[in-house]
Design a protein around this nucleic acid. Structure first.
Lengths: 132, 132
DNA sequence: TATAAAGTCTCCCGTAAGTGGAAGGTCAAG
DNA sequence: CTTGACCTTCCACTTACGGGAGACTTTATA
C-alpha cells in the first residue's frame, strides 16, 4: 500500500509517516520505478505501535529502542520494564514540578482582585527579587 | 553596564540576555562607538522579572505581555489575573494528562516480570490495536 | 607600550518532532 | 488528453535557547 493508506490505517499524518521513514524509524520498501514508498501490514503495525508509544510520552529515540525490542522475539522483558519505569519516574518528576508551580500561581492569584484597579500582587510577585 | 554584568545580576546567561534583546523583549541602548549593549538597572529588573516568569512556565510571548503590564502603571489587574488563571488551567490540564499516562504505564508495568524471559505485557500493550 | 586575555559582536548550526508549502513526478478516471 | 488526487524531495518555520567561529573592543599584565 502507499503512504496515504498506511497513514490512514495507522491514524498518523502522511507527513509524520514520511518523517519516520526519513529518520529510519520505520523504513518501508520503495517501488523502483515510481519511487513511492510501499508499506506492508507489518509496517502499519509498527506505525500503530509507535503512534501509541508517542501518545504515552516516549521520545522518538525511546520508540526506536522499544521497536527493536518489539521486533526481537528473544528480548528480555527487563529491558522494556526499565525503559517504562524510567518514563514513569520522569512523568512523576514533571508532575511534581507542575504541582509546585500551580500552588504558587494559585497563591499569588488569590490575592489579586482582578478588577480595574492597577494594584496587582501577581505583578508584584514576579517583580520581587528573590534571595536564592 | 555591559551584557555580562547584566547577565550575572539577573541570573541569566549572556546568550539568553542577548536573545531577549534580539527578539525585542528587553532592548537596551547600544553604545554608538563600540556597538556594545548597555543595560540599565531597570533593564536588569526586567530581566529578573522575565527570568522569574519563565521559571513559572510563562512563554516568551506571555512574558512580553506581562512585561508590558508591568511597565504600564495603569494596567487593570484583571488582565494579569486572566493570564495567570489561564496558565493555571494549562498546568492542571497537563497534570491530568500526565496522571493518566502514569496510571496506565504503572498498570502495564505491574504485570511485567522484568526478568530474562521474552514475555512482556508492556510490549503487548503498545502493540494492541485500540478501537478508538 | 606592547601584547595577551577577557569580553563582546554578528552569524550560522543544532536541538524535538513534526507542520506547512512549493515545485515537480505519477497514476487513474473521464 | 487533461484534470485531479496522490506521491516525491527540499526548504522554511516552530520554542527558547546553547555552541562555536571569526572579528572587534576593552582591560590587565609584563
Amino acid at each position: 500500500m502507499n503512504i496515504g493508506t498506511a497513514a490512514k490505517k495507522s491514524g498518523l499524518s502522511v507527513k509524520t509517516v514520511r518523517f519516520y521513514s526519513n529518520i529510519g524509524l520505520i523504513s518501508p520498501d520503495k517501488s523502483s520505478d515510481s519511487n513511492y514508498r510501499i508499506y506492508s501490514i507489518q509496517d502499519v503495525e509498527k506505525l500503530l505501535f509507535v503512534g501509541k508509544a508517542r501518545k504515552f510520552d516516549f521520545s522518538i529515540e525511546e520508540c526506536r529502542e522499544l521497536l527493536s525490542l518489539y521486533e526481537n522475539k528473544d528480548r528480555p522483558s527487563s529491558e522494556v520494564k526499565k525503559i517504562t519505569l524510567k518514563k514513569i519516574k520522569e512523568i512523576e518528576q514533571r508532575m511534581a514540578e507542575l504541582d509546585s508551580l500551580r500552588t504558587e500561581l494559585k497563591r499569588v492569584s488569590k490575592n489579586c482582585s482582578g478588577d480595574q484597579r492597577p494594584d496587582c500582587p501577581i505583578i508584584g510577585f514576579l517583580a520581587e527579587k528573590n534571595r536564592s
